[in-house]
């Protein structure tokens, strides 16, 4: 298993390098000059030039790239061109916030999605199944920001149950976590339903029934466990999406996460922050996928890693 882990880690290296090259090139290919932007609409040419020199933007592209990679290798992410702040501090503050939000959202998604999917499969073609399908469709179709704003207006402004926005207490986490988790919940419910239906038709379930096992035991221990593999795969991918896609939720709920940091820095052409944020998100994707692979083994002992 350790060998497998090592192999996967090595495979990740070119992926990370690829991300570095692509991000570096993409932010620079985007129209818009960071020096002009920093100088603002008031500035004269000399100021723009001086800003360009101050941030090394006047140097040739290959030199900038070499500098970036060299510093990165030493763990130096540089300073934000917009705020002049150490990028590592921005990442250190923002990343755990997004992780917290994405984690809460995926917990919501699994906690609601799996039972809903199981019920839906067991009560196939009843009103319960129809209801789950209806809400799942609603869940994937609703725009996140719209759902979030409605949730704020109803639960925070009208009922006063939760804080309107911001981060801090557990209460702050509830609405954003649900908002972010809604579409994943729907996807996981649908996935669980179809996986369960497939498994419930199989011979070992019939055997278990024939043995005289109780319905609940069959469902949980035999059927669900076998149905979980595809659900976990989707769940892992969803987690990555939640990390990268939290920006709308973060904006609506004023959640100081990495998604908002990334969007703000793209708009400001803040190259060092864009590069670092994308890199961190890409790394998260890679790590989560690796973890998902390891979870397979725990769910299904037949899966081997050598």
């Amino acid at each position: 298993m350790f060998q497998y882990f090592l192999r996967r880690a090595l495979v990740a290296v070119p992926a990370v390098l690829g991300v570095i090259v692509i991000v570096f090139a993409m932010v620079r290919l985007a129209p818009g000059d960071p020096a002009i932007l920093l100088a603002g609409e008031f500035a004269d040419q000399q100021t723009v030039e001086r800003i360009r020199v101050r941030f090394g933007l006047d140097r040739p592209m290959p030199e900038q790239f070499a500098l970036f990679v060299g510093n990165l290798a030493q763990g130096d992410l540089g300073r934000s061109t917009r705020t002049n702040r150490l990028v590592i501090n921005d990442i250190r503050e923002r990343f755990p916030n997004t992780l917290e939000l994405a984690f809460a959202a995926i917990v919501v998604a699994f906690a609601i999605g799996i039972p809903a999917g199981v019920i839906s499969a067991l009560k196939r073609n009843t009103w319960a199944d129809a209801a789950v399908t209806f809400f799942a469709l609603l869940g994937v179709s609703m725009p996140v920001f719209w759902f979030g704003l409605l949730a704020i207006l109803y639960f925070s402004v009208q009922l006063g149950w939760f804080p309107v926005s911001g981060r801090g207490t557990f209460g702050h986490l509830i609405l954003p976590a649900i908002t972010l988790g809604v579409s994943s919940t729907a996807i996981i419910a649908r996935m669980t339903r179809s996986a369960m239906l497939e498994v419930l038709d199989q011979d070992f379930v019939r055997t278990a029934r024939a043995k005289g096992l109780q319905g609940r035991l069959i469902v949980v221990k035999h059927a669900l466990r076998n149905a979980l593999i595809p659900v976990v795969t989707i769940g892992g991918l969803e987690f990555g999406n939640l990390m990268a896609g939290a920006v709308l939720t973060e904006t609506v709920f004023n959640w100081p996460g990495i998604g908002r940091l990334l969007v703000d820095s793209i708009l400001a052409r803040d190259y060092p922050v864009v590069q670092a944020s994308v890199l961190v998100i890409a790394l998260t994707f890679i790590v989560v996928n690796l973890l998902v692979d390891l979870v397979y083994g725990a769910i299904d002992p037949r899966i081997r890693y050598d």
Binding site: I152, V164, T251
Partner: peptide, 15 residues
Amino acid sequence: LAVPENTTRMAMAES
């Protein structure tokens, strides 16, 4: 407070 979303910002005043 930094509240970029208009509706959220107004909701903060309303609440």
